[in-house]
Design a binder for these strands. Sequence first.
DNA 1: AAAGAGGACTCGA
DNA 2: TCGAGTCCTCTTT
Length: 327
Amino acid sequence: MSNPVGSLSEATVYGSRIGITEDSLAILERNRGSSEPWDLEETKPSVPGLYLSCFDMLLTEDATYVVKVSDASPALAVPMTRMEPRDEPEQCPVIDSQEQGLSPGLEGQEEERSLEQVQSMVVGEVLKDIETACKLLNITPDPMEWNTGNVQKWLLWTEHLYRLPHAGKAFQDLTGKDLCAMSEEEFRQRSPQCGDTLHAHLDIWKSAAWMKERCSVGETKITVAEELWSEADSSCSGQPIHLWQFLRELLLKPHNYGRCIRWLNKDKGIFKIEDSAHVARLWGLRKNRPAMNYDKLSRSIRQYYKKGIIRKPDVSQRLVYQFVHPV
DNA sequence: AAAGAGGACTCGA
DNA sequence: TCGAGTCCTCTTT
């Protein structure tokens, strides 16, 4: 994984744009150190729809947040490009639909898809970085569960990341629960210098924890078999995801992804990729490989033949594969 | 033309 | 070392 320090700061800035209050965003921006890899000012043109309430964001399934944004700005292309600065232009998702001269209907679809892509990347990065921090600090992701020691660790970590003055003493003897109950004003009273920044960052952690909870609660309505399968859902485990797991994830969410991948025979584990380009794009997003395409994805699937994970069904059909061990 | 198969190589964890 | 990404050639649909 990339340097968690830089990565967290980047993701946090964007994460706050979609999940955290506008105030938090403003505070984070105001207090960001000069070491930040890019200047948010440039990416801040009005994209009203992106300032979702935490509630709206957390109600959605998985990390793909479908947002209806009637006036999404092409300026969105800026964060997208910046989140993926690698020099792989060949298949970077097209964000700027205006320049593409798409028809109005297509334009809307493209914008929505692009927003989904940006948001899913952002949220994924935020969650990943929080998970990294948790591992490093040996704390749980949910601030509500922190004891006073955990709170101090988190404070030290955040202060270190954002070069904030040390404020640990001001929050001494407070548990995570206490912290979560505090308003921004109370944070500021305890630490006039960086209370607002700390409050904003805690906001992000709270949102992520809430989202994680929804992620696990949301699975309870599915069947036992699906539950077993969902254990491999990397969006909840933090482990690097395998392609077969990812495909399963998509298949378990027909409501979201049924148009690009669906079961032909669930019992036998036979599925069809309906939109190869879309599935490849989603996989590329998940793995942060903007140049991903179906050619490469299918090569990876074919590697599973030897391993006995996926095979072609007895009656081979285009874009149809079969899990060797369906649950 | 798109999909499928698989070799060969690279890369990062 | 392994899983995946990339590039490639050739075959099949």
